[in-house]
Lab assay of single mutants.
Amino acid sequence: MEVRTIKVFTTVDNINLHTQVVDMSMTYGQQFGPTYLDGADVTKIKPHNSHEGKTFYVLPNDDTLRVEAFEYYHTTDPSFLGRYMSALNHTKKWKYPQVNGLTSIKWADNNCYLATALLTLQQIELKFNPPALQDAYYRARAGEAANFCALILAYCNKTVGELGDVRETMSYLFQHANLDSCKRVLNVVCKTCGQQQTTLKGVEAVMYMGTLSYEQFKKGVQIPCTCGKQATKYLVQQESPFVMMSAPPAQYELKHGTFTCASEYTGNYQCGHYKHITSKETLYCIDGALLTKSSEYKGPITDVFYKENSYTTTIK
């Protein structure tokens, strides 16, 4: 009895394709271990004539594949690729409408935090270190965002349907971005203890939790000093293409032309909904596939993004 075979390709990165001759009487799992086709788990399936010449994702289970996976995804987590594939199996079914010149995501599976993050990423200057993220990001900007969303979920250790947080998501993504040249110098002034300067680099240099107003941050924000008295913390120097200011959701007025974009969060910790506000020729609110415009805006804002380049204080 002759062994019926077909020729397929296996890959971990969709760049390096490895030619395989597979036995049609055995499952993919018996031949390769966990195997995925377009995100779908085909591990328990036997090869079919229609699979001839198709590319299958496999887990990096030998040295060659491990090197290829690390170079593309910059992670050695053995569960990463499987999590990416199972997320992709959902995100490829989502709709990605162009809204006001940006790629958004039609609401499904509690994905409003991903839509808000995706919209924000198209408006701030950011370059990702893992080629996987950078490639998928370019495709997302062009309207094909399924891979990018699935990668975000995998890097953030999230599953489809789980509630997510924009600030946490951005923080994970910033860790995989090139923020080497970003720098922030802060000064804390206390009447009792004097003053202390701190220099922050990388992710810490672009994120701040405690106030939404970048102007206020430049002037000074009140913080408790270690001595128990009130101290003032203010920005001395900022070198970065953008800054992200966050605070627990509270009524906040966004003035046209003073910011790049913002995240609105309605609801409580267990259950809520994100919308995205962007400042173009007027203010726009993007909620999944829905767009509304207004000249002014007041609502429960939790993150505001500002364009920056270089700032030095005039406070002496």
Results as ranks from 00 to 15, higher is better:
T211V: 10
V67T: 13
A250L: 12
K218G: 01
E215V: 03
M85K: 10
G82C: 13
M207E: 05
E162I: 02
M170L: 14
V42T: 08
T198Y: 15
L102F: 03
N89Y: 15
A289M: 06
T19S: 13
V185T: 09
T169V: 15
G39T: 13
L118N: 06
E168D: 01
R167K: 09
Q20I: 09
Y96G: 08
K218W: 05
Q30S: 15
A136K: 04
E239K: 10
G299I: 08
V22K: 01
G299N: 07
N129P: 06
H18W: 02
V22N: 01
E144M: 06
Q237N: 10
E215Y: 06
A231L: 03
L37D: 15
Q238K: 00
E144K: 13
N309M: 07
T76Y: 09
L126M: 09
S104L: 06
A140V: 14
A250Y: 09
Y73I: 06
P60Q: 10
R184I: 08
H276W: 08
G101K: 07
G272E: 00
Y265L: 00
P130Y: 06
D303I: 02
S213F: 01
P97W: 14
E253L: 11
L81A: 00
Y265F: 12
K92G: 07
L186W: 04
L200R: 07
N16V: 15
Q123S: 03
G53H: 10
V188R: 09
E215I: 01
K191F: 04
E204H: 09
L186V: 15
Y214H: 09
L65N: 08
K233N: 04
T312I: 14
Y137M: 15
N14P: 11
A87Q: 12
L102A: 00
T5Q: 12
S25C: 11
A142H: 14
G210T: 02
T91W: 01
M170V: 07
D135M: 09
T91H: 01
Y269N: 10
Y36S: 05
T169G: 10
Y36Q: 11
Q195C: 14
T266L: 04
G33A: 11
M24R: 12
T64I: 12
V221W: 03
V221Y: 09
T302P: 02
K127I: 09
S25H: 13
E125F: 04
D287H: 00
V243Y: 01
E296I: 12
M244K: 07
E204S: 10
Y57L: 07
C182N: 02
H51E: 10
M207N: 03
C193N: 04
F148S: 05
H256E: 07
F242G: 00
R83K: 13
P241N: 12
Y155Q: 00
T211F: 15
S279M: 02
D77E: 12
E253M: 05
E144I: 01
F217D: 02
R139H: 08
N111V: 04
I105K: 08
T192D: 14
A150F: 05
E125G: 13
E296N: 14
D13G: 12
L151K: 04
S279C: 01
K307N: 06
D62K: 12
D303H: 05
L133F: 02
T314F: 11
Q251I: 14
H273V: 02
T282M: 11
L173P: 06
K95P: 00
M244T: 02
Y234V: 05
T313F: 13
M24L: 13
D38S: 11
Y274P: 01
S181H: 15
T159I: 10
C271H: 13
E239F: 07
F217P: 01
L212D: 04
K280Y: 10
E308D: 07
T11G: 07
N14L: 11
E215C: 01
A247Q: 00
T120N: 06
Q251K: 06
C112S: 00
E204A: 09
Y306H: 04
Q197G: 05
D77H: 01
I286D: 07
K7H: 14
I277G: 01
Y84N: 05
F174W: 03
S50K: 13
N309R: 13
Y284W: 14
K44H: 07
A146T: 06
S86C: 13
K229I: 06
G82H: 15
K275S: 08
H176A: 06
L283Y: 05
S294T: 14
S171I: 10
A146D: 00
Y311Q: 04
C190V: 07
A250Q: 15
K46H: 12
F217R: 02
T159E: 15
T5Y: 12
L151Q: 06
C285N: 10
V243R: 02
E162K: 02
Y234R: 09
Y172A: 14
D135Q: 12
A146F: 04
T43Y: 10
V21R: 12
A145N: 03
A289F: 01
E215F: 06
D109N: 14
C225K: 03
